[in-house]
């Protein structure tokens, strides 16, 4: 007979970790994210690198190589460009695209969601139906379609990804508004003659802040992945912009002779994405333990 006793009195259904582990997860992930941000902002100042110039003599050097006094800590790619320099620049692209996309999606989505939830009725059902329709096309496919139509490039990518994101922000802000709207002080504000706009801005909007923050963190991870994937497919960054996804794609042709080109940028990408996921998870446990993100 197997033991299936599960002590439900002490184990919560969400994997909430003990205080110390949770703290460690939060600070460790925040530290790693901060490090990436620092590298993205300051890296190019301290580490000299030119993403455009190629050097055939230095092609496909393994990590820890050094040629004519120039050292290549992580080796070089098929065009002789320094891999470490590319990865540092890649952090800039990755975080830049994520910040632009999530900020754009958040602002548009939050405004739509707040208005939709506050007024309710036909407008609300119309907007939510629109969201359903957009979600009928998987987000990555929608982004691929838009990039295919508008042509590749960082700006297009940000716009395309932001358009696929507004739905998630709109849904979560709407559901917070639906709860906040029923509070007595909203009624009081209405009776005292405040306009809808004033009520939304000063009484309703702040209820959406913490769920939006949680969703934004999670979306940053997803957008970083989406950017890398699209660039990997040749639908994102152009050849002069060393996005991690693009570097990984560049290494595919020489995967067996030069393993480092495709694998090392992926380590940076994975570390960042996993840290963002853990950070988002901890943030949710602290701010919005009941938030559902499946739908």
């Amino acid at each position: 007979m197997i033991d299936t006793t599960i002590d439900t009195a002490t184990v919560p259904s969400r994997p909430r970790r003990g205080g110390r582990v949770a703290h460690l997860r939060l600070y460790l992930s925040a530290g790693i994210i901060a490090m990436f941000v620092l590298v993205a902002v300051l890296g190019p100042v301290f580490y000299e690198f030119d993403p455009v110039t190629t050097d055939v003599a230095a092609r496909l050097l393994p990590p820890l190589s050094s040629v004519d006094g120039t050292s290549y800590p992580l080796g070089t790619d098929p065009l002789g460009r320094d891999l470490l320099g590319q990865i540092i620049y890649g952090a800039r692209i990755s975080l830049g695209v994520a910040a632009g996309t999530v900020l754009g999606g958040l602002v548009v989505g939050a405004v739509i969601g707040i208005i939709s939830g506050y007024f309710g009725g036909r407008l609300d059902s119309f907007i939510m139906r629109l969201a359903d329709i957009q979600l009928a096309v998987p987000p990555i496919l929608l982004a691929i379609l838009m990039v295919a139509v508008l042509g590749p490039g960082i700006q297009t990518l940000i716009v395309a990804l932001a358009i696929t994101r507004w739905v998630f922000f709109a849904r979560v802000s709407r559901s917070s508004v639906l709860v906040a709207r029923e509070r007595p002080f909203v009624e009081a504000a209405r009776v005292s003659g405040l306009s809808h706009r004033q009520i939304m801005m000063s009484h309703i909007a702040r209820f959406t802040v913490s769920p939006l923050l949680v969703v934004a963190t999670m979306q940053i991870g997803l957008v970083i992945l989406a950017e890398a994937a699209l660039s990997f497919l040749g639908l994102g960054a152009s050849a002069q912009e060393p996005s991690w996804g693009l570097i990984i794609a560049n290494g595919r042709g020489v995967l067996l002779e030069a393993w480092w080109i495709s694998t090392l940028p992926g380590v940076a990408l994975s570390l960042l994405v996993v840290s963002v996921a853990v950070f988002g998870d901890e943030l949710r446990d602290r701010l919005q333990p009941d938030l559902r993100l499946d739908d």
Binding site: P15, A228, I248, L256, G266, V273, A277, V278
Partner: peptide, 22 residues
């Protein structure tokens, strides 16, 4: 198991594919 499921959810699949090939 939870760590495995977190990694499964967040590691980039195109990179994982190339590493798996290697």
């Amino acid at each position: 198991i939870s760590t495995f499921s977190l990694l499964g959810q967040s590691l980039p699949n195109f990179w994982l594919g190339l590493v798996a090939i290697l």
